[in-house]
Design a protein around this nucleic acid. Sequence first.
DNA 1: GTCCAATTGGACATTAGTGTCTAAAAATAT
DNA 2: ATATTTTTAGACACTAATGTCCAATTGGAC
Lengths: 211, 211
Amino acid sequence: MDIQNAERPDLAKSKRDRILEAAATVFCQDGYTGASIDAVATKAGVSRQTIYNHVGDKDGLFKEVVAALTDKSAAKFMLLMEEFPDKPTDVSAELTAFSARFLNHLTQDKTSRWLLRLAENESGRYPELFTVWREYGSGRKRSLVAAQLSQLALNGFLDLDDATLAARQFLALLTAEWRAEFQLGRFPSEEECTGMAERAVKTFLRAFGKR
Amino acid sequence: MDIQNAERPDLAKSKRDRILEAAATVFCQDGYTGASIDAVATKAGVSRQTIYNHVGDKDGLFKEVVAALTDKSAAKFMLLMEEFPDKPTDVSAELTAFSARFLNHLTQDKTSRWLLRLAENESGRYPELFTVWREYGSGRKRSLVAAQLSQLALNGFLDLDDATLAARQFLALLTAEWRAEFQLGRFPSEEECTGMAERAVKTFLRAFGKR
DNA sequence: GTCCAATTGGACATTAGTGTCTAAAAATAT
DNA sequence: ATATTTTTAGACACTAATGTCCAATTGGAC
């Protein structure tokens, strides 16, 4: 199959991608059991048999979807993390701005939301899959944030004793309101993200800011 | 049906309860679509027909389960909230002790965990059901915590400007580690709960404690 | 003991989904 | 143009689930 993709990248990849994309939406909407191959096929505009040709069976389809989403999501977050303020002139303002972008991305990005949902729902069925996701997805996010916070501490902007814990708490504060209010369907607007980021950063800095 | 329950409370209630109990575990394990009436029937030690006699159909069963769980969970939390420290001699220690108990209950209690799972998974299917749950379950929890925090502030132990926000952030800090590490299957021990509570309260008091 | 409601087990029709197979059609390469 | 590979549509067998109907049975109430 790799050979085929290498030789006919455009069309083969396009069809495969359409399948994976459709499968992602269906899996995340209906869960593993509720999702039907037929639904994926029609949504992808592809015959059912083609899906079986590509991924074998439902299990295979599911695993490929999760792998693809994980990669996609991780890549975007890597990029986003580069905007984390290194040597801010105004810690509060710059951290807030970054947090707002971070939160906005987390809540708007379909891939991220889908993965989170899948991870929460299907972890019982595929524990090994989501162990990987956790270490590679949310775990990686946390450790990147931890590294950045350490640097801020080193540069004298924060007062930390455990950067990993601080990162976890930072992320918890940042996503607290979203988890409580928005998770069911609605999306926060950019303004709402900014508001949530402001309140989270304010508390975070009350706890860990240099006084 | 109410008449029946009133006339023969023991047996009718016992059978009904066995059904609801079994249904709760099956729904939470397999989700709405994955759960089968037969599985519920066998787990409850009851004929399938009896279930249909009691609750009509799968939808009815699901709604009754959620209603029952919501009530049960709410009652327990009401009780637990009475242990919140009013006029502590040592804020940090007493708040930590309460938080540890709270977290222990939240993570160990099957009802709570099931409801949380159901809320996260099935909110798309039954939005109205979980709007109620949110206001009556997690929302009520938060507002109770907010009230207690306000009192602590009034008594000069905390420095707050928004008690509701503080309550949300408090709960987010408290559950942060559990959400990240334990959600998939494993349970935190009492010692682990104490540890998580200590770290959460420490940060919370760094942010909001009177200095 | 007799009556009555609840319960049971099993047969049943219906629906929906998975995965396989095949022959025809479409797209692609040579 | 022709050969090869991919894709398609549809038929198919198989499984599992929902919800209904009913006759037989249980178990408590009077």
